[in-house]
Amino acid sequence: MSAPKQKLSALVITYNEIGYIERCIDSVSFADEIVVVDSYSTDGTYEYLLSHPRVRVIQNPFENFTAQKSFALKQASHDWILFLDADEVVTKSLQKEIINTINDSKACEAYWFYRTFMFKNEKLRFSGWQTDKNHRLFRKSKVRFTDKKLVHETLEVDGSSCILKEKLTHYCYKSYEDYKSKMLCYGRLKAKEAFYKEKHFNYLAMFFKPAWKFFHHFFLRLGFLDGKKGVIVCYLNALGVLERYRELKKLEKKNELAYYLVMP
């Protein structure tokens, strides 16, 4: 007698993703359930999800990426989880690999996915992203999102991690303003991480680290081979690093002011 088919929960977190979330949802229609946690979108994303017959949508205030993903994970009914960002798409070949993987008796507890990055509708082949990978498929009972990171959340796995062969498609760059906004948001969250860890602002790091980020991604990670796309992406990634130090400086000043205000 063959073992019963493993059930899969597809999870997504969203905020103002209309125009992209539709493609994401379509690509996970093979899952047994689709749960989306929305951060009170204002562009029609929530209304689209609410009307979708396959989607269970829940609105939850956004605190940070780790908290939001941890909340979403609690909503899943099944042990096997496929966790995507709203601008990610599962290809047909990856769908087959996922189904075969979770029904394999020798499956690992979690799986890394490499990603194909898209600049609008063109592939971004270099610019530091060519070796990027993330945990996207895992057993709910064997993982947790560490609370040590607020952005670029890290999965702690009780067991082994393997890598799937097929790549996930990531529409990372929609427009200049969208990507810039994303990088600035990441920078501010990174600043909060650093502040909570009692790391201190210094001017040398604020000037050196963004310059190194651009140099590393554009020259050492071959961003120049992506042409104009590489220039834009590497510049905005460096801008995100600069924002981290700007925000850290602001947080330290606020903390100092609060300290002096409560002094007797």
Rank of each mutant, 00 (worst) to 15 (best):
F214R: 03
F201H: 01
W129L: 07
A107G: 04
T66Q: 12
Y235S: 15
K249L: 09
F65A: 03
Q6L: 08
K199M: 15
K5R: 15
P53W: 11
I232N: 03
Y173R: 05
S161E: 15
N121D: 12
L225F: 15
L82Y: 07
Y259W: 13
T169I: 02
L164W: 08
P264H: 13
E156P: 03
L239A: 14
S70Q: 11
L222G: 02
K182Q: 11
S2D: 15
T42L: 13
A86T: 02
Y171E: 01
S181A: 04
G128H: 14
A211M: 07
E247F: 09
A86C: 12
T131W: 13
F207T: 09
F119I: 00
D158I: 00
V89S: 04
T45G: 02
Y179I: 02
A76S: 07
R23W: 11
I163C: 10
A76E: 00
S70A: 07
G223C: 00
V89L: 05
K192R: 13
L189E: 08
V151L: 00
S70R: 09
A238L: 01
K174G: 10
N100S: 06
E109I: 06
A211E: 04
P53V: 10
S161C: 15
W112Q: 08
Y196P: 02
H78S: 11
Y173M: 00
T42N: 07
G240P: 00
A31H: 04
F219A: 04
D158G: 03
L50I: 03
T42H: 05
E177D: 13
S77K: 11
M263E: 14
K254N: 15
T45Y: 03
E177Y: 08
K7S: 08
L8V: 09
F215P: 00
K190W: 12
T131D: 14
H170S: 05
K174L: 06
R221Y: 11
D158K: 05
F83R: 01
V231F: 09
A205M: 05
N202C: 12
Y114D: 03
K213F: 06
P210L: 04
S161I: 13
K92V: 10
L150M: 14
R221W: 02
A107S: 13
E109Q: 15
F126I: 03
T45P: 07
K5C: 08
E122I: 05
I232S: 01
L73N: 06
A67G: 12
I81Y: 02
A67Y: 06
Y40S: 02
Y196R: 12
I98H: 09
F218A: 07
Y203N: 02
D85I: 06
K165Y: 09
L204C: 10
L164A: 07
E17M: 10
R23T: 11
Q6V: 01
L189Y: 15
R139E: 13
